[in-house]
Design a protein around this nucleic acid. Structure first.
Length: 295
DNA sequence: AAATACGCCAACCGCTGCCAC
DNA sequence: TGTGGCAGCGGTTGGCGTATT
């Protein structure tokens, strides 16, 4: 049983990379491109395992890497994305061009955690520290729109992704009591009208319930549906909600369930900029925003 | 100046999920 | 359908540089 090792460990170097090794790796990838990491070391004349080469390239040698300190904007974006995604460093890194998952992970552990603690916020739950301990035993009352993932990390409103890039939008207020959310509402949610208007509303909630699913489109042009399903489990009493993977014909989609108090059942399609957003409110009074993402 | 403590970050390890056979 | 190979991910570690005593 067990899997054979990815490389012959006794014949591979470990530890810090030398300049010569870096150059060999860079030159090889320049000529042959990325991929086939298992066979790359031998082909490139490196006494390294493929995983090591991949890590070195992705985290350090890639030409498009951004160097230098993180900006305040990047800080806020990381915090917001962590609120939504948790320790999904690769997903977070995907929204920060030039930054790697490893870099963000390290930065989170060395800087942002401390920053959040100094603000009295639990970096794992994004709840106030004194509430975090109590929250483990507190169950929200049923049939309320208690929002489960509390955003409590910044004093600034932040737009997590701009509309023009075809992904999603969240305008978040971090004053613990006020969250501004740009919401799409149906002009007549009870009719079959396809027309819809968007309006911006300010909601006053202490907690925000966000669950997110990501999936590739079920386009017929795709023979392989590589569905990356991310499920943020929500326990509301004993009830567990699961977000469906939603696909559109425009690529990777994000779906947010935002728990707003409303009895309206909305199902509309709306174009914002170059992208199409679908907003659906289900029977649990949860609005779902589907926004295609570039991939 | 030397010893120690601390912080940062590159790199490693082990696991998971996907794909091909 | 089951199994093995592979790439990718997240957690952890170890070494180096800097600050403090």
């Amino acid at each position: 049983m067990g899997r054979s090792p990815c490389c012959e460990k006794e014949h591979t170097n470990k530890g810090a990379w030398t300049k010569e090794e870096d150059e060999r790796l860079i030159n090889y990838i320049k000529l042959h491109g990325e991929g086939c990491w298992r066979s790359l070391p031998k082909a490139a004349g490196l006494l390294r395992c493929g995983k090591s080469c991949r890590l070195r390239w992705i985290n350090y040698l890639r030409p498009d890497l951004k160097r230098g300190n993180f900006t305040e904007q990047e800080d806020d974006l990381i915090i917001n994305l962590h609120t939504l995604l948790g320790n999904k460093w690769s997903l977070i890194a995907a929204k920060l061009p030039g930054r790697t998952d490893n870099e963000i992970k390290n930065y989170w552990n060395t800087h942002i955690k401390r920053k959040l603690y100094s603000r009295g916020v639990d970096p794992q739950t994004h709840r106030p520290l004194k509430d975090s301990t109590a929250s483990t035993t507190t169950v929200p009352p049923p049939n309320t729109s208690v929002l489960q993932s509390q955003i409590t990390t910044s004093n600034k409103n932040t737009i997590i992704n701009d509309i023009s890039n075809g992904s999603f939008q969240l305008v978040g207020g971090y004053d613990n009591t006020k969250i501004n959310v740009t919401k799409l509402v149906s002009e007549d949610s009870n009719s079959n009208s396809s027309s819809a208007v968007s309006s911006e509303e300010t909601y006053h909630h202490q907690q925000l319930n966000l669950d997110l699913s990501i999936g590739l489109p079920s386009s017929t042009s795709h023979t392989r549906i590589n569905t990356d399903k991310l499920k943020i489990e929500q326990l509301q009493g004993d009830e567990q909600q699961e977000t469906k993977v939603v696909t559109t014909s425009h690529g990777l989609c994000l779906c947010y369930n935002l728990g707003f108090q409303s009895n309206q059942v909305c199902c509309c399609n709306k174009t914002i900029g170059n992208s199409i957003t679908t907003t659906v409110a289900d029977n649990n009074n949860m609005y779902r925003f589907y926004r295609p993402m570039d991939i």
